[in-house]
Design a protein around this nucleic acid. Structure first.
Lengths: 145, 145
DNA sequence: TATTGTTATACTCTATAACTATA
DNA sequence: TATAGTTATAGAGTATAACAATA
């Protein structure tokens, strides 16, 4: 089968997969009163390194740095993270998840029910093949420009 | 290898894949001055059936129906779609993509460069395996709540 | 001079609730 | 009564531009 046909067959499947995954993630986040952006920030802070400059967080969730101020304000007010001045460079403020924030992140991850069930239902060879394909795709998909 | 370990290995890969895919899609949409929501509406209208009630569109992109009014206003003002009253039920308005809208949708799809390249670089067996796994996952992932 | 975070501004998305016109 | 679309409202995300503090 030609490359073009393979891609054409995969494209709509990938689109549906991404849409369904996001719905599941958003549902888990909203169940705890978090917006999509807030959940992304929190989960970013709960994968090592657990303290990150606000600037770095903006880069990771792909938004302008000025937005992080307000997002951090709201999450700090609810006790899920705190600001810490970096002693080495006093311009920089790191965001750090509080114990409450860490616990919430764990809950959100656990409550992606459909994603977890779908992945758990794969056979071992299917899971292995899926992991291999994703690992093959990511370098190209995560290329910068 | 146990199911739990398979899932734990897959989860971060899937998260990165979804994030990278979305970045690519959003970049293509923003390149034409469309927001993510506007692009989703437009692409929904360019997969048959090409005319859909505003209510149906809200369901498909998973937002409240009241939002579609404003989104449709902005896209109609830019000439990418138009409203059509359904003669069979005069409460209903269908959204229909204009030729300009159809052309733009094609361009956005074509400009998901990293996604297209990543998929095109798969070998035939990899593409087949990927399609099979996605087809296995979707019924569970798309289960309603 | 350059960078980090903040603030102000304008626009968009979002849900909720009240409204209209149809059914 | 019930449904489709609209409007008004409030809260949140977003980019841009200007600013203070620090490097």
């Amino acid at each position: 089968m030609s490359r073009v046909t393979d891609t054409d067959r995969l494209t709509p499947l990938v689109g549906r997969f991404v849409t369904a995954y996001l719905q599941d993630f958003l549902q888990a986040a909203e169940g705890h009163g978090l917006t999509l952006t807030q959940a992304k920030v929190l989960l970013t802070l709960t994968e090592p390194p657990s303290a990150l400059p606000m600037r770095e967080i903006a880069d990771r969730i792909a938004c302008d740095a000025s937005n992080i101020t307000g997002v951090a304000d709201r999450m700090e007010a609810r006790g899920f993270l705190r600001r810490e001045v970096n002693p080495a460079d006093r311009r920089v403020k790191n965001l750090v998840a509080t114990p409450e924030g860490l616990a919430l992140a764990g809950r959100i991850r656990a409550e992606q029910h459909r994603t977890r069930k779908a992945l758990a239902d794969l056979t071992e060879p299917e899971a292995t093949a899926f992991a291999e394909v994703l690992t093959r795709l990511l370098p190209t998909l995560e290329t910068n420009p």
